[in-house]
């Protein structure tokens, strides 16, 4: 529960350090794939950070991702890059705060339904603004940021998110989330404010997604609301989180890696049937891996371990 061991941090940094060398050895095509993978890894991890402990399934990842991208499209050329990123995170966090304040005090179902339509609404609002105020639907993003730089930025973001996730798990807030997830009513009677804890996490998770969207924006050169707020992305992120297992920090990361390869294979071979296959894969995961791959592996480990334990447990039972 309370651990100060630096090992996980060192591990994360070491892996990140090795991955950082990738741009020097891979082709530009492979690098583009790696960027897509890193992006999903960040989004799925951020998603799991909130939806895992709270069990509030967010279907609105693309809203915050899109907000990040749009921030870059609007102010990318007039502000220094770090300020652009900061602004993207702030706007994403602000929107999450409003959404969270309205829905997180209610039962999870209201939150899910609200996030379900949120991307549609934001897309419509941005389209309306662009059509009526700027008088053109699309925008061009011309920034002097190379693929390699995007890769490193995403990797840095993922590293920070992973380290932050480990630190969170060891912190009082992380413990609070476990308690809230265990029994919200009881948690209230021991001084916890569940709504506040959920809100803090939702805002944090959304800021990360907005940052990912901002970092990815220069790849597109052209964006419009339909591209930036495409609900399929939210769906993909949920699949990844579920496949890996959202009750562990590294679950969504694992899911993101596996699914990115699967998406690549599917969209290459069956570009027409992409949605259908996504839907089918998703349904299969819900049936077969309700706790994700990580959950299944843990079950198997627990089962093999329990067998030799059975006898001793029986003895204790007899004695008492």
């Amino acid at each position: 529960m309370i651990s100060r061991s630096p090992l996980p941090y060192i591990g994360i940094l070491a892996i990140a350090g090795m991955v950082a060398l990738l741009p020097f050895i891979v082709s530009s095509f492979q690098l583009a794939f790696a960027i897509g993978l890193l992006n999903f890894a960040v989004l799925a991890t951020a998603w799991g950070l909130f939806s895992g402990p709270t069990r509030y399934i967010s279907l609105a990842s693309v809203v915050f991702f899109g907000i990040g991208s749009y921030t870059v499209a609007v102010v990318g050329e007039v502000m220094p890059w770090p300020a652009v990123l900061a602004l993207a995170a702030l706007i994403g966090g602000g929107v999450a705060l409003v959404v969270g304040l309205a829905t997180l005090r209610l039962a999870g179902i209201y939150f899910v339904i609200f996030t379900f339509g949120l991307s549609e609404m934001v897309r419509q609002l941005v389209t309306w603004y662009e059509v009526n105020v700027t008088l053109s639907v699309g925008r061009y993003v011309f920034l002097d940021i190379s693929q390699t730089q995007i890769f490193w930025q995403l990797l840095a973001l993922l590293t920070v998110v992973m380290i932050g996730a480990v630190a969170l798990q060891r912190s009082r807030l992380g413990f609070a989330l476990r308690v809230i997830g265990g029994d919200e009513t009881m948690a209230r009677h021991f001084g916890l404010n569940p709504t506040f804890a959920k809100l803090a996490l939702f805002v944090g998770s959304s800021m990360i997604m907005a940052l990912a969207g901002a970092i990815m924006a220069p790849r597109w050169t052209y964006i419009d609301p339909a591209i930036a707020f495409n609900i399929t992305l939210s769906f993909q992120v949920v699949i990844m989180g579920l496949l890996g297992g959202m009750h562990r920090i590294y679950g969504p990361l694992l899911g993101a890696i596996l699914m990115t390869f699967l998406f690549e294979a599917l969209s290459d071979r069956f570009p027409q049937a992409f949605s259908l296959l996504l839907g089918v894969v998703f349904i299969l995961i819900v049936y077969l891996l309700p706790n994700g791959i990580v959950g299944r592996v843990e079950e198997l480990i627990a089962r093999t371990r329990r067998k030799p334990d059975n006898t001793s447990a029986g003895l204790i039972g007899e004695r008492s």
Binding site: M1, F175, V179, F190
Partner: peptide, 14 residues
């Protein structure tokens, strides 16, 4: 620890 952790002024430590 659930009972202890969220008292006012309680530090988070071993």
């Amino acid at each position: 620890v659930v009972g202890m952790a969220f008292r006012p002024g309680q530090p988070w430590n071993e």
